[in-house]
């Protein structure tokens, strides 16, 4: 009986299954998207890790993707840092997220060297919960420094790379590429992750408006 055998094998505690391999010691924060949590090895965005996120344009849902982490951090009294974002963070919009604006810091740096230094300082500090930095390109040596800092400070770092080659060798434990899909979706390519496999997922972003009225077409 095949089914019977499979059941027996499945119940055998000596069996190790690749799907069970999660980084057990890594703390993670749920992403807010169950299907994405399922794909991530740590069942969420891993703590103490640098996430390299290739995002070709802003406004495709990159903040909504990390919204839950920001809300969790601010709920725990940890700070959220944004370093050199491409646009001006808009307080009335941020205020509509479920987080205290007193925990959000915006930092502007002068050049690449200052930016890496700033990110490193932030990631090293346990008071920082989430550190997001925007950079036009990625230098593997810089990412390595940032990864070590995030490990040391047990903070979460997201480096949003707005252009540059996706396929360059990178030391970041988690590497994502985001592509918008019409009308309101986001395709997430997990190109690599520590302790897990690469994967691809199309995510339907939650609607912006609670009562999603019929779009008024024809303007």
């Amino acid at each position: 009986m095949t089914i019977h055998t499979t059941n027996r094998i499945e119940n055998d505690p000596r069996i190790w299954r690749a799907s069970q391999h999660k980084t057990a010691d890594a703390q993670a924060v749920a992403t807010g998207f169950p299907e994405l949590d399922h794909l991530l090895a740590a069942s969420g965005w891993p703590q103490g890790t640098l996430i390299e996120c290739h995002c070709p344009a802003s406004g495709i849902g990159e903040i909504r993707l990390f919204r839950r982490v920001m809300e969790v951090c601010s709920g725990q009294g940890q700070s959220v840092f944004w370093v050199d974002p491409p646009h001006t963070p808009y307080a009335p919009g941020l205020g509509q997220l479920d987080m205290g604006l007193e925990h959000v810091f915006l930092i502007r740096t002068n050049d690449e060297e200052d930016r890496v230094w700033t990110l490193e300082q932030l990631l090293k500090c346990p008071a920082a919960g989430l550190v997001m930095g925007w950079s036009p390109s990625c230098n593997p040596a810089h990412l390595r420094r940032l990864q070590l800092a995030a490990e040391g400070g047990d903070t979460m770092g997201v480096v949003v790379i707005t252009s540059g080659s996706v396929h360059s060798a990178s030391p970041a434990p988690v590497r994502l590429a985001l592509t918008p899909t019409l009308p309101q979706g986001l395709r997430i390519d997990i190109q690599r992750q520590r302790g897990g496999q690469a994967g691809r997922l199309s995510l339907a972003l939650p609607p912006l408006l609670p009562d999603h009225g019929p779009g008024s077409e024809g303007h």
Partner: peptide
């Protein structure tokens, strides 16, 4: 910080 009243939806980025 100042209190933010909930009004119509606003974006996170201002252009």
């Amino acid at each position: 910080p100042d209190s933010t009243e909930t009004g119509p939806i606003r974006p996170v980025w201002l252009q």
